[in-house]
Design a protein around this nucleic acid. Sequence first.
DNA 1: TCACACATTGCAACCGGTTGCAAAAAATGG
DNA 2: CCATTTTTTGCAACCGGTTGCAATGTGTGA
Lengths: 334, 334
Amino acid sequence: MTVTLKEVATRAGVSRSAVSRTFTEGASVSAKTRRKVELAAEELGYQPSLIARSLATNRTKLIGLVANNFRNPVFLEVFDLFTQGLQKRGFRPLLVNLSTETDPEKSLHMLRQYRVDGIIIATSTLPPSFPNAFRKAGVPVIHAFGKVDAGSGVHVVGIDNKKCGEMAANTLVERGYRNIALLGGPRSATSTQDRLEGFVTQLGKLGLEPTDIRFARNYSYSAGREAMSELLAEKQVEALFCGDDLICMGAMDAARGKGLKIPEDIGFLGFNDMNMAGWSAYDLTTIHQPIRDIILSSVELVVAMVGDPDRSSETRLFACSIVERSTLKPLPKS
Amino acid sequence: MTVTLKEVATRAGVSRSAVSRTFTEGASVSAKTRRKVELAAEELGYQPSLIARSLATNRTKLIGLVANNFRNPVFLEVFDLFTQGLQKRGFRPLLVNLSTETDPEKSLHMLRQYRVDGIIIATSTLPPSFPNAFRKAGVPVIHAFGKVDAGSGVHVVGIDNKKCGEMAANTLVERGYRNIALLGGPRSATSTQDRLEGFVTQLGKLGLEPTDIRFARNYSYSAGREAMSELLAEKQVEALFCGDDLICMGAMDAARGKGLKIPEDIGFLGFNDMNMAGWSAYDLTTIHQPIRDIILSSVELVVAMVGDPDRSSETRLFACSIVERSTLKPLPKS
DNA sequence: TCACACATTGCAACCGGTTGCAAAAAATGG
DNA sequence: CCATTTTTTGCAACCGGTTGCAATGTGTGA
């Protein structure tokens, strides 16, 4: 059915090695044989089998792409950039969806069975034991959006979540808010924990304490909305720092549903700066997470590691910044 | 570095075939040898190489997943369901991003080189020549969201876009709208073309003609917003049928920006019923596209085809339905 | 023209599994 | 207990490439 090396070799009147070499980067073939081979390959519609090549070279050019949050819009950008970045460099993403996987161990086995050259884990809601397991298996692994975690040999690319928490605290206090609550993403996410820590600490330094702290059950509009409804039923707050724009939009709609005006009655500060944050129905002031930088850097790093597996472990943190829109009171004139 | 069959065989004191057979579904091994082998494998941390197996069996269990629209939120659901569905059946998705690919031919080569067992193409913005090329190469291919296209041997799973166009026309006219415009997705999408046709035809049957027809440059909020601004500058309309919820939300915000009230001054009918359509800031009346059914069915079909490549070509169309929210006037009491 | 260096080529072993086939072992029945 | 059937096992060839090595071919300078 499919055309193989051998048939091309026969047709071109050369050895199998010659054919192999014309299809191998940087191998030694004369212009003449190359022409003959290419002609024969063309005529036969030959496509080298990457499977066979992988077996022989022990390189698959496959990168495992592991995620467990397929419903958050930021992952659109994540997937887009990952796949493009990998494609551009001649690698292919093998997608793993951990959303419903009870046993991440199984995914590890699967990825090992496919002999992926490297792995990118894009989530902050997995315990470090997961990336570490891959590392122990000797596979290059990048933990994007991960928690800085010294000494495990896992490369981390992301942001400094603690600093972001501090930034949020400063931003809200600067604008005169005092009665401030935090509505985080899932409590188990390391990003949530770190932001919380930075936020509370910085608030403390400014002599304040959060009025309320709670966590949405996941990164969704409805989770944000629900959590906010509960919060409003119990307490009164002047401003809210949310762990994610989606959650924040849900929270905004809950507040509006109670007749509150934004930002007069209540201020909102989101996180991520996803596309929708700019929609005029929300026009959300938010902290921009440099997804693009994170992804591009992760791809670059994983490819580099494939070339040099002993490359020493590295942590790359990118800066976040406030994107000013209309859900917070402006800075008072000083 | 990695443990192979041979080492397990030696350790277990059996032949390589015996090891292979214990890891092969439905092969003949006695309970005793199986135990020995499993023990040895466990001790050595053996993981069978799917690469080697693929080479020997000529089956990779890899399914190519081709898309070219990574920025539309419906694809979150699409990716989630695809990957889960494939995983559940022991297949793995090899992701191909055609967004920036100028030459789809290259992707075809790549997928053929990886010897994928099947391909799912999830887009309506590719010419039928693309899926057909795969089919010609003898690879099972499912065109999800595709255009019904007889005789090419490509399986199509999706909806009847013409009928949806008719449904939209009926819905708007029923509610008393007469001055109706269409704001479609990209003109090149077959789904857009079919909906347009159904819409205009049905309107014609009802004695009407669309006030305006235009197309957003892509499936995005901003494209919808821009197109709507242009439309409003030129014409006055009572209701708009949009080719996508995102586009529709952009259009709504453009209308609101001009001071129009929804649905009093202008009605909106979206398409897809994506999550965000239910957000209270929009609360969009829209046509539900049964993404879930389409994906699950596509996965099922592609897996079936891998098992039986000569299975005859099939088209599966699912029904769409109106989801009533608040961007259209209610049906007049009859 | 010849000796030499260097580029190109083919041979054959290897990558890590699967599988048809025949031999060996176990189970069955008389 | 033996002949027969059925199950289990190992051998060896194969899947489609790559690559070290030795042999061949080509080009250079003297």
